[in-house]
Design a protein around this nucleic acid. Sequence first.
DNA 1: CTGGGGATGGGGCCC
DNA 2: GGGGCCCCATCCCCA
Length: 268
Amino acid sequence: MPRSFLVKKHFNASKKPNYSELDTHTVILSPYLYESYPVPVIPQPEIISSVAYNPVTVWTATGLLPPPLPNDLSPLSGYPSSLGRVSPPPQSETSSKDHSGSESPISDEEERIQSKLSDPHATEAEKFQCNLCSKTYSTFSGLAKHKQLHCDAQSRKSFSCKYCDKEYVSLGALKMHIRTHTLPCVCKICGKAFSRPWLLQGHIRTHTGEKPFSCPHCNRAFADRSNLRAHLQTHSDVKKYQCKNCSKTFSRMSLLHKHEESGCCVSQ
DNA sequence: CTGGGGATGGGGCCC
DNA sequence: GGGGCCCCATCCCCA
């Protein structure tokens, strides 16, 4: 899966991009002032109607303050249940999970049958017509169900992004998606932009060195919970991702993929 | 080459 | 409806 349209990040000094060129709309505030935390700069989008779009308000310092370090951050108390469970198979195409694919799974015929089954008068002449697709129903409830499950949802699927082909059934979903284009959350130190505040928050930890997630088995600490979770796999004898052929286990799916690509599964 | 850490994106859920 | 958070996934880099 492509990592998205975001510009590939390079944190090595030798590869550090000129973030000031990323977005001419961004304003880089003076660095090293994190007692006030970064203020996101919202490019004024023209991707949706001005009526619909409601720019994100300026954040307050409290809104971006790093979370306190609760005691239950330790994986011992908070993680085992999730860590122990088996991950679902990876999605073959994440874009298929977005809101654009939210059509009702109920076919027209099934819907009609459902409508009739649920209504004792379904055999009567159909007199309730959908004003969107002209389909007729014998009862109002049948029509209402149709509109709720199918037609209204389709008619609402009209919020499309001007930056890409994606469509969304709700304005909120579109707004969130648009943030991935406009990247309104800008780091005051390096100017890097993010789509969501918590992404920026995690990024800020790379500057501050804050690592609130500590491993209960060793002295390591991590700035990101997911990375701690991955690290905990390294302490496990039986790791989460197993090769179907040689039964070797790996702490990360990427390692399993590498293993498979190296020829283990091909040779058997 | 392999394993692991760092960084980050997106969907989903909850409030 | 929106924001915050969680979880999963992935890419990149390094030892």
